[in-house]
Design a protein around this nucleic acid. Structure first.
Lengths: 231, 231
DNA sequence: TAGTGGTCTAGACCACGTA
DNA sequence: ACGTGGTCTAGACCACTAA
């Protein structure tokens, strides 16, 4: 009997997945090392490594030097989540994106915002509503550190959302994101045209340029919004 | 002047990130091709490829054959989201996980559930509460197709959550996940010891073994819950 | 059609961590 | 101590696609 041939890393990955799904390799089991697999599959070890590395990144298998590779017992699976612009998200549904500025002011950051951003003082404060086909889609409440986002103080934000302006003009190196549920404040409720207290999906984001906070934003989505992903 | 030496793919990646963050390479700009970069960095093209491939996967750069590599204009950034077991999540906070079965029955799936799973008939229906240090943490409402999860019909689910039992006994190849906000139903409110109508964070998951739905679950989290990630 | 990224190979050395 | 995965190299061929 000749050895089966799996020549690309995707073929190797598919075969490994097949064996795990078929329970030939069960959760907790050790699987052969890379060299043996490469031999059995008739390919280079590099190819096996690529296939297994990507499976390890999703949490399906666990790899440790010397200990080898095992099928994960408790798969803390990693999902990939796309974080698009609101405009992109609306347009991806085939709807027309609208944008309305509600407020733009310079104000002292409230303690909660100052704490999140790690600095205090006068910030730019922008509130706006995004629409999908004319229906309120999300409300956005943003604070910007003008010292970290040069030019922001001169921008009106009446045509382009702060979101997009910042992407083009204020580089950032990392961001924290949190998802939660909240009851609509009177302000959010008015913007989204829903009764106050309605449950809304909320995302909080703070973005950083190295160790300096650039902006923090709270987006509240109209009822019915669902953030989807796959495993 | 001698060429700078970047010998590992992480060093190359760090240098590329530095140039993007320093705006030496700006959004929309093309960057040198792999061969030229490898030459400039004093390493093999494979090493540059690995560094750039991983940046492309996060959405920071865009790569197309022949067209080359560009810094993304609108970084639809990809975040990685960990999907742990509720028990793991509670224990990761240093709290004691508790579990209480509320209901276990065989019943015909309601239309919404049957539609999600693509089959109808008698399903196993399990409701339970998870606790963190004795405080309600999440309510779980689950439907299981006994034909797709052999042995489930004989399991009591009074000590081990259906979540964990299924992980150990029912393989799945993929899952859909959706996050949303909802107002607590009387049942959920009672389980979480909160007033009905309170905003709760909800995750809906359906897992599949190839094309056959195994289980669908709705988890409602006690107020204050936040799902966190980074970009 | 030509340039670019995508991938494979064979061999090598290294880092880690278990035994 | 030593087996395992992690990575680098140099070269090669291929797949895609812009010009």
């Amino acid at each position: 009997m000749t050895a089966p041939q799996f020549n690309t890393w995707r073929e190797v990955q598919r075969e490994v997945l097949r064996r795990i799904h078929a329970r030939e390799w069960r959760p907790g089991d050790a699987i052969p090392n890379e060299a043996d697999l490469a031999d059995a599959f008739g390919c280079a070890r590099t190819t096996v490594n690529r296939a297994l590395r990507e499976l390890a990144e999703t949490g399906l298998i666990e790899r440790r030097r010397k200990a080898g590779t095992r099928v994960a017992l408790q798969p803390t699976r990693l999902a990939r989540l796309e974080i698009p612009l609101l405009r992109q998200e609306v347009e991806a549904r085939g709807q027309v994106h609208g944008y309305a500025l509600l407020r733009r002011e310079t104000a002292e950051a409230p303690p909660a915002v100052a704490a999140k951003m790690g600095v205090s003082g006068d910030f730019l404060h922008v509130q706006a509503t995004h629409f999908a086909d004319g229906t309120p889609f999300a409300h956005e409440d943003r604070w910007i550190d003008p010292a970290a986002a040069p030019g922001a103080a001169e921008e009106a934000f009446d045509r382009i959302s702060a979101n997009e302006w910042l992407l083009m003009h204020a580089p950032f190196t990392r961001g924290d994101i949190a998802f939660s549920a909240a009851e609509a404040t009177p302000q959010v409720a008015q913007a989204l045209q829903i009764p106050p207290g309605t449950a809304v999906f909320v995302t909080d984001r703070t973005t950083w340029d190295h160790d300096r906070a650039v902006t923090t934003v709270t987006q509240s989505f109209a009822p019915g919004y669902r953030l989807k992903t796959r495993i």
